[in-house]
């Protein structure tokens, strides 16, 4: 900004705040398949355009069209792009030789990598982590053994705490990215990526995320095999006498790893949900013999068992 004609062509703090607010609020208001967040981006540039090109119809038209191109990124960390774009627009309005192509290529060059980092961090780690905490505070795990939810009160602190924490995370990260992007420009992105700070945060958060996810798997995935195998004169119950002897909880662990593997191979998760639903219902069908009771005292004739392993046969 060497030849800046000082005065009304510079961005004020309230313009930045307005633009940040518009982005935070309306980034996905008109989300669509054709250009994703394009109108959201243009909308967030409105206070900037008004300040820089106010009164100049031709420049306003050009600026609006410039920011209505395809745009899609992760709205928190991706707000860096808005800061950088505003800085470039300010220079351009003050006579610096910045072409439309330069602005567009900055935007489209940054939106991919930042979306990758941002989605990993926000949707991949932070959101599930806070949800896991919320779910466990609600006290769901205690109800899992009986399956009957009626009459049990959860702790409402769970959702409330989640709500507050995620709001703080989202708003503060967007604000920080936006303002730092404006102040430091492009070099912010390169310096942060080079310093390895992002890598450190993502690896650390990945460790924490994995640990909590493992805990969730142990708490909430329950599968009980219900059938016996007759070996000679001895009756061997598949769950207690065999699987649990190898390692307690080995079946759910193997099951979640199998699910992960099959999803990684590209099966649509909703399809898998439907497949599992059918398997569970088929697993409960008493194909031969007596219908199962709610909590049976011995293994029925179904393959799977709700609410805990079937107990030792009652002595007659």
């Amino acid at each position: 900004m060497s030849n800046t004609p000082a005065g009304d062509r510079s961005i004020t703090r309230s313009d930045l705040l307005k633009s940040w607010f518009l982005w935070t609020m309306f980034s996905h208001s008109n989300y669509n398949y054709e250009r994703l967040q394009a109108t959201g981006f243009a909308h967030s540039m409105v206070p900037i355009i008004k300040r820089l090109y106010g009164g100049d119809k031709e420049a306003t038209r050009a600026a609006l069209k410039r920011h209505l191109v395809f745009f899609n990124t992760e709205p928190e960390i991706g707000a860096v792009i808005h800061g950088i774009t505003i800085a470039m627009e300010e220079e351009k309005a003050n006579g610096a030789p910045i072409t439309d192509t330069a602005i567009n290529s900055t935007k489209s060059g940054l939106m991919g990598p930042l979306a990758g980092v941002g989605d990993t961090l926000t949707q991949g780690i932070v959101l599930p982590l806070l949800l896991a905490l919320g779910i466990s505070i609600t006290g769901l795990s205690t109800t899992n053994t009986t399956g009957d939810l009626t009459g049990i009160k959860g702790n409402v602190l769970g959702p409330i705490l989640f709500l507050v924490l995620i709001a703080i995370y989202s708003l503060s990260l967007t604000y920080f990215s936006f303002m730092q992007g404006y102040v430091q420009g492009r070099k912010l992105v390169t310096s942060v990526f080079k310093s390895g700070l992002i890598d450190r945060v993502i690896v650390g958060a990945g460790v924490l995320g994995n640990l909590v996810l493992g805990g969730l798997a142990a708490k909430f995935i329950t599968i009980y095999l219900a059938f016996d195998v007759q070996i000679g004169a001895q009756k061997v119950r598949a769950q207690q006498d065999f699987l649990d002897k190898i390692m307690p909880g080995i079946l759910p662990l193997a099951f979640v790893l199998f699910t992960w593997w099959i999803l990684k191979r590209g099966l649509h998760p909703i399809k898998l949900l439907v497949i599992y639903l059918v398997i569970c219902i088929l697993g409960a069908v008493p194909f031969m013999g007596p219908a199962p009771q709610w909590i049976t005292d011995q293994c029925g004739s179904s393959i799977l068992q709700p609410y805990g392993p079937c107990a030792d046969p009652v002595a007659k």
């Binding site: 399956g147 995935i221 949900l273 569970c280 409960a284 709700p306």
Partner: peptide, 28 residues
């Protein structure tokens, strides 16, 4: 019928595996 309800109850233990595995796809 009761067997179908207990089938749904089994689902209660099985379906969370998908939510957890979807997340594992990202960080595991």
């Amino acid at each position: 019928p009761i067997w179908l309800l207990s089938g749904l109850a089994i689902c209660g233990g099985v379906l969370p595996a998908i939510g957890i595995a979807m997340n594992m796809r990202f960080i595991f």
